[in-house]
Amino acid sequence: MRLNSLYKFYQGYFNYTSDRSKTQKMVYAFAIRDTATVLREVYAYQNYSPLYQYFNRDKKSQIAVKFLKNIKLLAEKRYKNPLEHYKFFDSIITIDGSYLSTNKKEIIIPCPYICDENNKEEIIILTFGSPININNEIAVLKGLVTEFNMDKPFSVDMSFVTYWNLSIPGETTVDYRNIRTASRASLIETLNKF
C-alpha cells in the first residue's frame, strides 16, 4: 500500500480533520499532485521550462499555480539561481509488513525533501498549509526515518528541518536534534489503521 503523502500519515497519527467538502479535498489533492509532478520535472531538467509549460496549459489547477509560484518565490529569497543550489530528493519511507498486524505486504510513505547544497545541515519539506503542529510532526518524521527504511536518507550532517508553506509563502525552521523521536509503538499503531 502506498499513502499519497506524508501528510496522510500525519492525519492518521494526529487525527487531523478538515471542514472541506469531499470535492474540495479532491481539488486540493490534485493541486498537490500537480505541484509535485512539476517540481520533479523542474529538478530533472534543471530549468523552469516545466513550470512555465504548466502555467500555460489550458487545463491547470489555480491552486497548483499558486503553490508553484510560492515555491519559486521562497527559493529565490535565498538564491538568484536556486536550481544551481537546491537538490530535490523524491524519497520514500518503507515499512515492511512484518511490523504490521494487518495482511499488508508493506506501507510506503512518500517523503520528498529539498537540500541546499551549501547547507548540509538543513532539509526543506514542502507543506501546503500553515504548520500548527510542527514540533510533533517532526517527532513523527524522526521516528519514521529512524525506525524504518528510507531510500534516500537525510544527510548525517542534517540538524535543521525547514517547512516551506506553499499556501502563503513562509518558512519555519526547527532544530531537529532537539526534537524527541516518536516511539515505534505509536507509529505502528497508526500504520495499522491504514
Rank of each mutant, 00 (worst) to 15 (best):
M1I: 09
K8C: 04
G12M: 10
F14M: 05
Y16Q: 03
D19G: 08
S21G: 07
S21R: 07
S21C: 04
K25W: 03
T37Y: 12
V38D: 00
E41N: 14
Y45A: 08
Q46P: 00
Y52H: 10
F55K: 07
K60I: 04
K60E: 03
F67Q: 01
L73I: 10
L74N: 01
K77M: 14
R78P: 01
R78Q: 12
K80C: 08
N81Y: 15
E84Y: 09
H85V: 11
Y86A: 00
F88G: 01
F89I: 05
D90L: 13
D90A: 14
S91V: 05
S91D: 06
I92S: 06
T94E: 11
S98V: 11
L100N: 01
T102Y: 05
K104F: 14
I108V: 15
I108K: 15
P110T: 05
P112H: 09
I114A: 03
E117L: 15
N119A: 08
I124C: 00
L126C: 04
F128Y: 15
F128L: 08
G129V: 08
S130M: 10
S130L: 13
P131T: 09
N133M: 10
I134T: 03
N135H: 11
N135L: 11
N136H: 10
E137K: 14
V140D: 01
K142G: 12
E147K: 09
E147G: 01
F148G: 02
D151Y: 11
D151V: 08
F154K: 02
F154V: 09
M158S: 09
F160L: 12
I168K: 13
T173L: 08
R180K: 15
A182Y: 02
R184W: 04
S186W: 05
L187Y: 00
T190Y: 06
K193P: 01
F194P: 00
